[in-house]
Design a binder for these strands. Structure first.
Lengths: 254, 254
DNA sequence: TTGTGTTGGTGCTATTATAGCTTCAAAGGA
DNA sequence: TCCTTTGAAGCTATAATAGCACCAACACAA
């Protein structure tokens, strides 16, 4: 991912602090966070205090940092603003009913896949958010198909980060890019995934235990692609007609 | 909310950019965003490019900005890291079954309430995220109870932001703080709300149309408080035992 | 109770990251 | 074809920031 001519270092590091606190899973002190991030503690402290002032974080009685109201609100705004989950869920439910498969919707970030949805035809419709720890992209059909749309530098970074052979990964991803889908037949159950969104934002997968990966392609690629197209179209309609939150309500420093 | 000695202006403004793009509800260009935020366009452009580089945002074919994978992942991490929704939902479901009321869980930020959950005993368990536009705090029992825990300066800001009489609001909020609950009997249906979390992070409300607000207190305060205590305890257990995402996976610049 | 170590947070100041003006190529619309 | 607006970046002055040193408070062990 190319940096712009003048990236803003404070914003980058501040978001990394936020990410680490959220990923910590429990309250964490400013010096502890600085050590775990390998940074100078005063700077981290100031970034944390700024996030606190904005209510993205708050402090418990021992002054350790934990999520605040603003980050919950950002989550809600993310889901509503992008419409990804609300548009995708009805399509995914139909897809699961028609195919009898489990399905997942996930995003790729920093060589990791995070599920937004994971469910089965039998279970009540369930949102996966909060259910799964992010996991390495190269172990996942969603990860591979999303990674295949990235540049060669990202492929090298991914190979290094995930500890796999770069040439092998390149062949695999090149094939995914060519075919427009990715297969994971190493996990149990196996899965097949395609991209959704324009620009691409997520991967959609169907999962089923099968004897041969070709069966995943033969049985499930077509309905999966149809579902992905439907979701992408719904997202584009969403982008054209979603009323914005009034600017007065968005403005936070007047 | 008091600013620290050396707040980081870039982080503040960068998060406001992100918030505005998400709240926009559709892709938005950098000059358009700068105009709507009342800021100089070069700076906004650099902040947007930085958010893009980190994949919090992405650009469509017309180079307009829309949510990217990282902000979805941050949402998932928020929900998982705080455990607020996953811990609260089973308790809320029981509460709705026992009382026959609709319920809501919401956070307060910038004088606005945002629902994380809103459901009824009859509907399948549903997450409200993405369902409701944030709305002004003083029109909501959740807003009032959360606001009552803030300082007097915040009360004045809220009165100004929501266009209500400061003295009237102060009396109302003082009463909420004293009683430990807030009533909204102006909306249809009426509702009663208490705080959850330690430190407080959200408000939990029950809603039902009643002839008199006293009936809300008499019938629903006790089960509501019980549910709030249960959720708060579960959150504290969560903070003690949630495994963190491995630091290797959190580290984004190595 | 006392001493030690660690904590969160800030004062001070050098410096560099940043902000804002200007400019440009590209794109869209009349 | 011309005009307007766009996203993006070069240049440079400056103010926001980074890092060191320090402090009061707290926890823990002796």
């Amino acid at each position: 991912m190319a940096l712009p001519a003048q990236p803003n270092r404070s914003l980058i590091d501040g978001l990394q602090c936020l990410y680490h606190v959220l990923g910590s899973g429990n309250p964490i002190g400013s010096r502890e966070l600085a050590r775990s991030m390998g940074e100078e503690h005063t700077r981290i402290n100031r970034l944390l205090k700024t996030l606190c002032a904005m209510e993205y974080l708050q402090q418990d009685e021992q002054k350790r940092y934990l999520p605040g109201a603003a980050v919950h609100l950002l989550s809600a705004l993310t889901i509503q603003g992008s419409g990804l989950l609300t548009k995708a869920l009805p399509v995914i439910e139909t897809l699961m009913q028609e195919t009898g498969c489990a399905a997942a919707l996930g995003v790729l970030w920093n060589q990791q896949v995070c599920y937004l949805f994971h469910g089965t035809p039998q279970s009540s419709l369930n949102i996966a958010i909060g259910r799964h720890v992010p996991f390495t992209a190269t172990n996942s059909s969603i990860g591979k198909i999303l990674l295949s749309q990235k540049c060669a530098d990202d492929w090298k970074s991914a190979a290094a980060a995930c500890g796999v052979d770069p040439l092998s990964l390149q062949r695999d991803l090149q094939n995914c890019a060519n075919e427009g889908y990715a297969i994971d037949d190493m996990s149990r159950p196996g899965s097949i995934a395609v991209c959704v969104g324009c620009p691409i934002v997520a991967g959609l997968a169907l999962m089923q235990g099968v004897d041969k990966p070709e069966i995943l392609v033969k049985k499930f690629l077509s309905p999966l692609q149809d579902a992905a197209v439907q979701i992408t179209e719904k997202l584009q309609e969403h982008d054209k007609q979603t009323p914005a939150v009034p600017a007065k309500q968005l403005n936070t420093h007047q």
